[in-house]
């Protein structure tokens, strides 16, 4: 048994969208692929993405901060998307808690996407089935991949290592440790879905001391005295 999920570090995410396109790239040929794109070269291109990055500004000028927030499936412990699914296509794996959509069984009723508060599910305009993050179930267990690469594509690619993958049931895992040490938070916990993924809030600003200056020093040229320093 395991509780697999992601930790996203809001302190270091620069909003590059690398995770979003890595996800798109891996999964379009992955187990739930393809991820279709409507009007890809036309007006209002709109495709299926499993991970999107949004940018917020917190606070008002001049005391504000920019925060980049990547969002994908939280693999909730009490996943309402699974509860509402009439066909049983949506399910949460007992082994590791990954929430998946069996592409052969989905009828495309959208109800699971209505039940999801995080916008994690998107209907594929071509296949007519619901697509969502699989935590790259087709990577993390693939023994033919090098051990270090058995991670979700978004985690593998993140240039600021702002995404960490692991087992929240293991108190010694990186994800558990980071959540503990950095005050990792769930998004919208009040809905009671118990999202597994956590977000690490931005760290407090680093404060550096100023050099303690001697007030007697003035601003004139003459006060500089040559020291004997050998070249």
């Amino acid at each position: 048994m395991a509780k697999l999920g992601l930790v996203v570090d809001l302190d270091t995410c620069v909003g590059c969208h690398g995770c979003a396109t890595a996800c798109k790239q891996w999964n379009t040929s992955g187990t739930i692929g393809p991820l279709s794109d409507k009007d890809p070269y036309g007006r209002d291109p709109s495709g299926t993405w499993l991970n999107r990055v949004r940018t917020y500004e917190v606070g008002d000028t001049p005391n504000s901060k920019t925060v980049h927030m990547p969002m994908s499936c939280m693999h909730c412990e009490d996943a309402a998307c699974v509860t509402v699914c009439p066909t049983g296509a949506s399910y949460k794996r007992k082994e590791d808690g990954i929430v998946l959509v069996d592409q052969d069984k989905c009828m495309g009723c959208n109800l699971c996407s209505w039940a999801c508060p995080y916008g994690a599910r998107e209907l594929d305009p071509q296949a007519g089935t619901m697509k969502k993050c699989t935590l790259c179930v087709d990577r993390i267990y693939d023994e033919k991949l090098p051990q270090a690469e058995r991670q979700p594509a978004c985690v593998l690619t993140c240039p600021t290592s702002s995404r960490v993958f692991g087992d929240f049931d293991d108190p010694n895992s990186d994800v558990s440790r980071l959540t503990r040490e950095r005050g990792g938070q769930q998004l919208m916990p009040e809905l009671g879905y118990n999202p597994v993924n956590t977000y690490l809030p931005p760290r407090n600003k680093k404060v550096v001391e100023s050099y303690q200056i001697k007030p007697s020093l003035g601003a004139t040229l003459k006060q500089w005295v040559n020291k004997v320093i050998t070249r």
Binding site: T28, S29, G30, T31, I32, G33, P34, L35, S36, D37, K38, D39, P40, Y41, G42, G47, T87, G88, A89, Y91, L100, D102, Q103, D104, K105, P125, Q126, A127, T134, V137, D138
Partner: peptide, 25 residues
């Protein structure tokens, strides 16, 4: 330029959920 794009380098291998699980969970 296509109106719809569904790129994939191979047919997807779907991870099937067993019917028994659907009916009993």
């Amino acid at each position: 330029s296509p109106q719809m794009l569904s790129y994939s380098s191979h047919k997807n291998v779907n991870l099937k959920r067993p019917m028994l699980d659907i009916l009993t969970r």
